[in-house]
Write a protein that binds this DNA or RNA. Structure first.
Length: 180
DNA sequence: CGGGTTTGACCCGCGC
DNA sequence: GCGCGGGTCAAACCCG
């Protein structure tokens, strides 16, 4: 785990980001070396519920959603109809043979798209917990087939279903860096 | 039967 | 206006 801490590189200017992925499985650690190349976090101010619902679609259409490989970590501003919208987004890369990382939450796949200039498709998942609309995108890098990029969007409104102490530690590391 | 996956259609923003 | 690419929907399907 110390190796992970060393390998882990944080790349974000966000000071108040919220981490939405909390756990990755022990299997991942044993079977696949967790590379953890980048961490990208954008933070949005807590929106009023009404605004949040209204903005979901705007967020969904945001071109920034497409930037899986971005490591800028800069705050993303979306302006439409006079509204400023910032959305929380965390992405990281793992060196793994499998695309789906067991992060302790239950996910339901709702789409898959071919990605231009990549032979691997991008998969879209939503948290299946009722009322929780956290999304994640999973894509394998065409450049390096061993690397999977996972992007989380939103914040879980419920506890983790399958806690895992090992990655709790990772989360702690990430949260320390991001001052969550 | 309930919940998850697959996959083609659809929508939207953007660049030309 | 049109084509392209990304993101989502939803019907059909699968599985435990």
């Amino acid at each position: 785990m110390d190796n992970f801490a060393k390998d882990f590189s944080y790349n974000s200017s966000s000071s108040t980001s919220q981490l939405v992925s909390s756990h990755l499985s022990l299997d991942l650690m044993n079977d696949k070396y967790f590379h953890a190349a980048t961490y990208n976090s954008d933070h949005t101010e807590q929106l009023e519920d009404d605004d949040h619902e209204q903005n979901l679609d705007l967020i969904r259409k945001s071109p920034e959603c497409n930037d899986l490989n971005s490591v800028s970590g800069s705050h993303v501003l979306h302006v439409k109809k006079g509204k400023k919208i910032r959305k929380p987004k965390c992405s990281f890369q793992t060196r793994s043979q499998v695309d789906i990382l067991d992060d302790g939450y239950r996910w339901r796949k709702y789409g898959q798209k071919a990605v231009k200039n990549s032979k691997f498709p991008r998969s879209y998942y939503r948290c299946s917990y009722q009322g929780c609309n956290v999304k994640k995108q999973v894509q394998r890098l065409s450049k390096d087939e061993g690397v999977v990029t996972t992007t989380y969007e939103g914040t879980h409104s419920h506890p983790i279903e399958k806690p895992n102490d090992n990655f709790e530690h990772i989360l702690t590391q990430m949260q320390i860096y991001s001052s969550c």
